[in-house]
């Protein structure tokens, strides 16, 4: 692992260790009280969920159309992280919803499209895991579709009632709430970058080992 990855990892770990105190120091929200603080975990996960899906899609385009073999390694790494951060998002969301809306789940556009995106990337990972030879191209085709499809899922479910708080609340947050939020966003972004680099490096090395085996056989 490169030295910069170690530094980033240490920094992310430190920030995650300090985060509970910073979140604790934020004031309670007027109507929801303490419960809203799940938001400091939920929103950064949701952002990283989307970012990793986009990284997987873009890397797949590079792999499939520009024939960059290493781009596939980034796509694999990002696709796994999409499932990871998607799971964070889809677990923390209902915990908040149960208190705020009184139900665990609502067929709201944001929730539905997140769930579908999550399912598509689980399918991608199943394909990569069990698809056998050639599944790299298949996966790339699927990831490209998944990336574009998110927009459609969004549009098609948007005609149901929306109760999810809009993202436009972010700039309007008071400073005392904004600081912990941006702190958590930074921590999650660092975590994402570290995990992505580590996972992609593993894929690079796996490809090199495979190439060595092939070279020895022939």
């Amino acid at each position: 692992m490169s030295r910069s990855t170690w530094y980033l990892l240490a920094l992310a770990a430190g920030m995650f260790a300090v985060a509970p105190w910073i979140i604790n120091a934020a004031p309670n929200e007027a109507t929801m009280g303490l419960v809203y603080k799940i938001y400091f975990f939920h929103m950064p996960s949701a952002w990283m969920f989307l970012v990793s899906a986009i990284v997987a899609g873009v890397a797949s385009i590079r792999f499939l159309f520009f024939r960059k073999p290493t781009a596939d390694h980034w796509a694999v790494a990002a696709a796994e992280l999409t499932v990871l951060f998607g799971a964070f998002t889809l677990v923390s969301g209902p915990l908040w919803a149960r208190k705020a809306w009184g139900v665990w789940w609502q067929w709201d556009p944001r929730l539905t499209s997140s769930l579908v995106l999550f399912l598509m990337f689980i399918a991608y990972n199943l394909l990569r895991r069990y698809g056998g030879p050639g599944s790299d191209k298949l996966g790339a085709g699927m990831a490209i579709f998944a990336m574009f499809n998110v927009v459609f899922v969004w549009v098609s479910v948007n005609y149901w009632r929306t109760i999810h708080p809009p993202t436009s609340v972010v700039p309007s947050l008071p400073v005392a709430m904004g600081i912990p939020l941006w702190f958590c966003v930074t921590a999650f972004t660092l975590l994402f970058i570290v995990l992505l680099r580590m996972r992609a490096r593993l894929e690079h090395q796996r490809a090199r080992v495979e190439a060595l085996y092939l070279a020895e056989e022939s």
């Binding site: 698809g131 699927m142 499809n149």
Partner: peptide, 23 residues
Amino acid sequence: AMLLRARSRDVLLPIMLYPMTVP
């Protein structure tokens, strides 16, 4: 067509297709 050469293609087709065709 993509799955022609893949293993476990029978189960992978619906897994990939259904979430994709939600819209």
